[in-house]
Amino acid sequence: MKENSNTELIKSNALKQKKLKEGYMLDLYLEMFLAEIMLKAEREKLLNKIDLAIDQRNRKNFMELSDQYKELTKRFGT
């Protein structure tokens, strides 16, 4: 009987470990997904501001925004 309880305990622990790993992977995918959404939103916002600076012929603003865009692409490797 002790063998059965040990076997069941081992199976139970293995199942718990599997669930923990699956949960970790889901959290990791979710974090990556959210980071991608935030990056795209920030990128789109910057591009719109850059377009506006071009339309207004505001060189100073354009240069500052362009530098921000370059930094964004460096941080995220895009």
Rank of each mutant, 00 (worst) to 15 (best):
N4Y: 05
S5D: 05
S5W: 09
S5T: 07
S5A: 04
N6S: 10
E8Q: 10
E8C: 05
E8D: 10
I10Y: 07
A14K: 14
K19M: 11
K19H: 09
L20F: 01
K21A: 15
K21D: 13
E22V: 12
G23R: 06
Y24M: 09
Y24K: 14
M25Y: 15
L26T: 07
L26H: 10
D27V: 02
L28G: 00
Y29V: 07
L30G: 01
F33S: 14
F33M: 11
L34V: 11
L34M: 08
A35N: 12
A35I: 09
A35E: 14
E36K: 13
M38W: 07
L39E: 04
K40Y: 06
K40V: 06
K40G: 01
A41Y: 07
A41P: 00
R43Y: 15
R43E: 09
E44S: 11
K45P: 00
K45F: 15
L47Q: 09
N48K: 14
N48A: 13
N48T: 07
K49T: 01
D51A: 11
L52E: 11
L52I: 05
A53P: 02
A53S: 14
I54V: 14
Q56D: 15
R57L: 10
N58I: 01
N58H: 04
N58F: 00
R59M: 08
K60G: 08
N61D: 13
E64G: 00
L65W: 03
S66E: 06
S66Y: 08
D67N: 08
Q68E: 12
Y69V: 00
K70Q: 05
E71L: 05
T73M: 05
T73D: 01
F76R: 02
T78F: 08
T78Q: 03
